[in-house]
Design a protein around this nucleic acid. Structure first.
Lengths: 219, 219
DNA sequence: AACGATATTGACCGATCGGTCAAAACAATG
DNA sequence: CATTGTTTTGACCGATCGGTCAATATCGTT
């Protein structure tokens, strides 16, 4: 690197890399790792194929980078959960956040789904490592809620799986959902309906108690 | 065809076709349509590649045949639903049937998932045709249940989506589920727990009333 | 203007893709 | 045994795969 024009240089580099990542996410999410071709990514990015490899090194490196980017987007979810939290509020926020993430990054969600479908060849360590710990810590807190009588006594892992599956469905199966509902795409109002539906059914289904039942007057 | 040794002939042919379909289902479900190669299918079936094409005609014909086979497996679900049915029993059976199907045909389930992820290029007509009608008719009955006060007033489409997603999750995301639970595979007992969990949460979450509340003595 | 570093890109590599074909192997009938 | 129809399969086709490379273009520094 020559002296300190680094800022400008990196800005230009970052812009191109972002463009490549965006194109690659679309192609990988649609066709999976093996089904995607660098040529298709290059075409979508408007660059020659050799340029993709110049910036990303290899198909695998590009793919792994996309996976990591998507994982990091999910890291913020359910961060502030504590044994003292109100289950209803936390579950509600969990559901809404997941729905929003799926809408904000539909290709990333599908990319992740395709990776799992293929048997998680690049993510098995993450699944049985970081993510397992993540789930275990949240499950322990949910378990405490049950013991405190704040909600029914349910397997917390299965509850987390339920929320995952129910929310991700609308990102990964958008083709099915829109096909059946006869819509071109899901609108804001649809998403709000979905969120309210899932909140109501899941929170009620878990027997979540009103937070301040002993304090607030029932009405 | 020569006279009537047709039986034997067809049996031999069917056996080979079944073998090919089984191998193809594995490969397609793991890599998607574009990511799968006829060579990989041939290797898994223990046949030369040219033989696959002799029996199946083309990669696309083989793929479409697998899709149709999987769709027909799902046809039996929720067939005997009526406005007079007990919602609890129907939903419970719906959930269990879906879980069982996912376990019986894990590759078929993943095949379908991969097809939807890719934007359902081969299934969009089915989704917005047959399947939409299927959903609409069931949704109408669920709506009647709500009007009869048998359950809460919820969007039936979203309820069907919820059950679909929650059950299919254990077939399509088996790599994630086993990775997080730290199991090699889901056992019978796990599946029973999952079914009971989903039945309890969803039925309770929908406010389903006990069927003979006015007849049976509360205990 | 001259120079070294970085970017860009067309040409090319061996491997593999889906698919064709004709020769060989096989089975059944006359 | 000869004949006819069906399977089987290796060889091959043009296209495309991921990846390499060297020639060229661009840029900042001196």
């Amino acid at each position: 690197m020559t002296a300190e024009t680094a800022d400008q240089d990196n800005v230009g580099r970052d812009r191109i890399e972002y463009c490549i990542l965006r194109a690659a996410e679309q192609v990988f999410s649609q066709y999976g790792y093996r089904g995607a071709s660098l040529q298709a990514i290059a075409d979508k990015a408007g660059l020659p194929k050799a340029n993709i490899l110049y910036y990303m090194g290899s198909k695998q490196a590009l793919y792994v980078r996309l996976l990591n980017r998507m994982m990091s987007r999910w890291n913020a979810v359910l961060e502030d959960i504590t044994p003292e939290s109100d289950p209803g509020r936390v579950l509600s926020e969990f559901i809404r956040t997941k729905i929003v993430l799926g809408q904000r990054y539909p290709e990333g969600s599908k990319l992740f789904a395709a990776e799992i479908l293929a048997g998680a060849p690049f993510l098995n360590k993450y699944l049985s490592g970081e993510l397992r710990e993540w789930v275990a810590s949240r499950a322990a807190i949910i378990r405490q809620w049950s013991n405190q009588g704040k909600m029914d006594d349910l397997d917390p892992h299965l509850l987390i799986f339920l929320i995952w599956s129910a929310t991700q469905h609308y990102a990964e199966y958008s083709a099915q959902v829109t096909g059946i509902l006869g819509k071109e795409a899901l609108e804001e109002a649809d998403l709000e309906s979905i969120c309210q539906f899932l909140e109501q059914v899941i929170i009620k289904g878990c027997g979540v108690q009103r937070p301040d039942a002993s304090l607030a007057a029932p009405r």
